[in-house]
Each structure stands twice: as C-alpha cells, then as structure tokens.
Design a protein around this nucleic acid. Sequence first.
DNA 1: CAAACATATTAATCTACATTAACATTATTT
DNA 2: AAATAATGTTAATGTAGATTAATATGTTTG
Lengths: 194, 194
Amino acid sequence: MSYQSLLDYINAVVPLTKSEEVELTNLVTKRKYLKGQFILQQGDIAQQQCFLVSGCTKMFHSDDSGQEHIILFAVENWWTSDIGSFISQTPADFNVQCIEDTEVIQISAQNIETLFIAIPKLERFFRKIIEKAFVALQKRMVRNFSLTAKERYIIFRSTYPELEQRIPQYMIASYLGITKEFFSKMKRQVLLDN
Amino acid sequence: MSYQSLLDYINAVVPLTKSEEVELTNLVTKRKYLKGQFILQQGDIAQQQCFLVSGCTKMFHSDDSGQEHIILFAVENWWTSDIGSFISQTPADFNVQCIEDTEVIQISAQNIETLFIAIPKLERFFRKIIEKAFVALQKRMVRNFSLTAKERYIIFRSTYPELEQRIPQYMIASYLGITKEFFSKMKRQVLLDN
DNA sequence: CAAACATATTAATCTACATTAACATTATTT
DNA sequence: AAATAATGTTAATGTAGATTAATATGTTTG
C-alpha cells in the first residue's frame, strides 16, 4: 500500500492495529512536488506537516537583507514543517523548498487533532518525534557556540554522509552558518588534512 | 497546597480532575537547592525533570577547553532538565546549576511513565510544552545566524526584561554566545543609542 | 552545440568578535 | 571595617569568517 513507509515509521515507535492504520491513512494525503517548488512559504500559514517518502527539501529563513539561513534538510523518512506556524496557525518564519523532486505524505492541522482523539497513542508518537528533534537542535546550538566552522563541517560529514552527495555545497555552507566562499576555502583545508 | 503552582500551570493547558491532581502530586516531589548547587551535572544521568517554584537556574555545557556555554535560564514556572539525558537515560551534555536559592518540583523518569499511563492527557501536556520549547529554540538559532550580538542582546532585553535584573552580565554574555568583555563594550553602545 | 544558468573557486580586503591582561567596582564573609 | 571573592570595565592586539569581485566549471535547456 502506498502509505507503507509512514506506517512502518510509526509502527516502530507505537505499534498500530490494522483498523488504526486504516483510520490513519484515511486522514492523510499524498502529494508530489517538483525540484524548486515550495511546500511552504515564509509568511503563509503551515497547513500541513510533511513526511518525506522520497526526495529532499530544505527549510530556511530569509532575513531582512534577503539572505537564506538553512536550518533543516529533510530526506526520506524525515518530517518537515514550520512547527511553530503549524501548531499555532500563525505566519511561518520559514520556507520549505524541494531541492529534488519530492513525494510527501501530509497531515493537516485539523486532521491531526482528529487523529489524536481517535488514536491517543499518536500523541505519544509525536511527542517522541519532537523530543528527538529538540535534543538534536540543542546539541547543534552548543556546537555553533563552541566549535569552529571546520569542526562543525567534519561532524556534519560524519553524521550525514549521504546528504553531502545530494546537496549543493552552498546550501551546506548556509546550514553550517557560513558563506559559500569561506566554506570552499575551509573544505580544502579539511581535504588536505586527510 | 504546596504543589499549587505546578497544578495551576498544568490546568491552564489540560484541565485535571481533583483525583488526577491527587494522583499527580503523589508522584512528584519537592526539593530546595542553595545558590551554587548543581541540580544536574554533565556526565550524570538526568533522573528528574524540574519545575521551578522559585529561584533561578542556568543550564550550560562545559566544552573541552573548560568554557561554559549557557543555553537556557529558568525562573518561576519554567521547566529545566537535560531532556536528551532524561528521555534516553544517557549521560547529560549539560549542567543545571542554581544562580539563586531555588525550590523545584521534580518528576522522575520512572514516575513520568506511570503518569502518562494513569493520566494520558499529560502526554498532550508535555507534547505542547516541548513544542513550545522547540519553536523558541529554532527561532533563537536563526537569530544567531542572522543577527549581530548587539541585535540579539536588544531582543533578549525586551523578551526577558526581568532576567536582566537577576542574572550577572557575564552569564547573559554566555547565553548570547559572546565573551563578557565584548558584551561590556557592546552594552555601552546600546545604552548610548537610547 | 550554443546559450543560459547554477554551482564552485580564488584572492584581496574588511569587521565582528576573541584573547590577554590590567584594573575598577560590588558583594560577601570573617 | 578589612579582607576576600565575585563581577564589570577598558584597551591593545589577534583571528575566524564576511564581503566583494573576478573567474572557472558544470549542468540544463532551447
């Protein structure tokens, strides 16, 4: 069935019965986006939370001077959305844009409430998902405080070896919080070191 | 009753019945710490999640060169804990230390599981709490990428006007990700500007 | 296969912030 | 009240990373 990757993902955390699986799949939708398309634009209200079936996205903030600051990539079996906008239905601080053709399973803000009532253990599931995301973000924050860009890059490489192949350098630079020019310079250093 | 501030806090998000309130208060404990004492030390496993009744704490990471990086303050009605350590019972990345005499209500890792089973809506409560924390952290991350220390300080002042009175400057500097020397210099600029 | 566009490199110059070190001011303790 | 510790300031010098701008390479598209 077409929602299998999401079901597998959820079942690994909170096992669902067959009827719960049906209920869930009735409240989600599937959608394809092309490379370059926006799933969410800064200023709009996030209507959906997205689970990636295939493809790759970046979530970023455009600041006043037009600079992009990438704060999250997502690939297969990752979630992406501006959670703040989604939960309080306020204008998003972030854009979500596809950097490959991307297929997602979406849950709307309305349906997620229905789901929480129908299947309370999904509340546990989403709590655990966001706990994990929070912990990762907190660690990244500390790294940005205490490590140099070079050190952060080395950690990024070893943490997400697949990502480096799929994502243009200048986006990785943005994710690390540095310019593409400095990234290029620093990368040469790293490669020479090995 | 002595757990009232916690009950008020929870009731504002998920209303509890009287019997649920009793059940909850039976599974939490109260404790006092003196200024300077550690609630949690880096490398230990976080046994408790803490709700502050009074006082003030800082949560920080000590890096390899011994530098402190503060990533969270907490005052009355805030939660504090190394969530990562607490949920997966692994060594903490962070210290939590009192910067005033502090009284907390604590929930242990074991009891929180009991609570989730006894009162499922607490699962919703903690999901909402952590969602809020996550959103705030994400915004702070973007600010660290896109704003100067001066701009971040101005936002800090207007967001937490009370904190600036209670907390030594050098800790605010650490929270902003800069040295106390640079903070001192930059603060003079900000004060001259007004 | 051009032409257009997206991505990456290099080098010169600039700046926000770190480091060091000395000193000043407040709190706290005895 | 003196002594000690904690906190805050100032100034000189150093550096990670930004900015600008020119050029190179790679990849789509007509």
